[in-house]
Design a binder for these strands. Structure first.
Length: 405
DNA sequence: ATAGGGTTAG
């Protein structure tokens, strides 16, 4: 720049600092920040905000707050953009009370709030599971005649769905559309999932139709929600049909979508089809993960195919996929059911040695089997272990592990 | 001229 005869000014420096921040090159950003002051350029609200926001996003809240104080001491006035960066950073760290304080301080300083800071704050309250406070902020925004946009509606809808209050989204969703704000695939997918999870299949399926009608393309996640929802309603044939149509619109099913369907097929007694899909996934060169293996293992165990389950477990180990609590629970229960109590006992020791906490279904299946075999000593030992771990020794429940994928 | 907000799946 010297060669060109042009002197960098505050905007030049701010632009570079912001670019460094966004590239994660904090050392360079700080170097420029020091350089500019050395040559007598005073950082402005843009410079500070770039640095504050970057520190917030890196979780360095202490540095961000320090910079904000420094900014005020340097006589640079706080504005809504800087406050939004701080509010968002604090919310991200779960420090919602402090975020609220920043917001209130801002109002006190007569800085006008806007859509963006309201969204950041609403998001923070939702994340902190304070939906009522989130709704208060939403109302305050409306009271100030600030129109919510897609991000704000999306956040509120997501929050309500999160709290199992999908019914309360109906009015908001209509209102949003009436304002001419187009929903996107995420909002539709979120709503569909919430409706399915509350057993409201009609509403969920209506949304699939509506999405098509308004020309919003589903994504792989949308399909996953749809397939999972249909399977859990026992509509496995429809789920398979939808699965097959994924490629028709140019998408490729991923491991998660395969797993949803495999799990659904297992739970709807279509083991053959489940195996077929699992192999199809392997043939496509996809690597099944923990959940994918566990779904098929669980299905096999519940259908008495112990050998196939053990083969899958072996393949899992060979490909470096660790068993998790769900997989252990399923295997131990299945082995007990198939009279392989020693193998089950070994797995229990293994999971405990890995620091996992077996639940009463795991213990219960072993204890019950030991009693049935007349091995009272082992049964009592395990019951003691259960009590030590703070589990109720409820071995009569005949509980079947309900594997949630 | 340069800074800030949300979200979906097994």
């Amino acid at each position: 720049m010297k060669e060109s005869g042009l002197k960098p000014n505050i905007v030049t420096y701010s632009t570079f600092i912001d670019a460094f921040c966004k590239e994660g090159m904090m050392q360079e950003a700080i170097k420029f920040f020091m350089d500019m002051r050395r040559i007598g350029l005073l950082p402005n609200e843009f410079t500070y905000t770039s640095l504050i926001d970057a520190n917030c996003k890196l979780g360095n809240l202490a540095d961000a707050i320090k910079l904000a104080k420094e900014m005020l001491q340097a006589g640079v006035e706080l504005n809504v953009v800087t406050c939004t960066a701080l509010v968002d950073g604090l919310c991200e760290e779960g420090r919602i009370e402090e975020a609220g304080e920043v917001f209130r301080a801002m109002l006190k300083a007569e800085i006008a709030p806007n859509q963006q800071i309201f969204t950041a704050l609403v998001h923070g309250y939702i994340k902190a599971r304070k939906m009522e406070k989130a709704m208060d902020i939403w109302k305050e925004m409306k009271g100030r005649n600030i129109e919510p946009d897609l991000l704000m509606y999306g956040t509120i809808i997501w929050g309500l769905c999160n709290q199992g209050k999908v019914d309360e989204t109906v009015v908001l969703f209509s209102e949003m559309k009436a304002c001419g704000i187009e929903a996107n695939h995420v909002v539709y997918t979120t709503l569909m999932d919430a409706y399915f999870k509350e057993g409201k299949a009609t509403q969920a399926l209506n949304l699939v139709q509506e999405m098509q009608d308004v020309g919003i393309s589903p994504t792989v996640v949308t399909y996953c929600v749809l397939i999972d929802g249909l399977c859990k309603l026992g509509l496995v044939k429809e789920a398979v049909n939808h699965f097959r149509s994924i490629t028709d619109i140019g998408l490729q099913p991923n491991v998660v979508v395969y797993t949803s369907l495999i799990d659904g097929l297992c739970k709807n007694n279509c083991m053959e089809k489940a195996r077929e899909l699992f192999d199809e996934m392997l043939n496509k060169g996809m690597l099944p993960d923990k959940t994918a293996y566990t779904s098929l293992i669980d299905g096999n165990l519940k259908h008495g195919n112990i050998q196939e389950a053990l083969d899958l477990q072996k393949r899992m180990a060979e490909t470096g996929v660790d068993l998790d609590v769900v997989a252990y629970t399923s295997l131990i229960w299945g082995l007990c059911k198939c009279n392989q109590v020693q193998a089950a006992r070994n797995l229990l020791s293994e999971m405990v040695s890995k620091g996992m906490l077996p639940d009463k279904v795991v213990y219960g299946s072993l204890v019950r089997r030991y009693y049935e075999l007349g091995n009272v000593d082992e049964a009592l030992e395990l019951q003691n272990e259960m009590v030590e771990k703070g589990l109720v020794s409820d071995i009569n429940s005949h509980a079947v592990p309900n594997i949630q994928t």
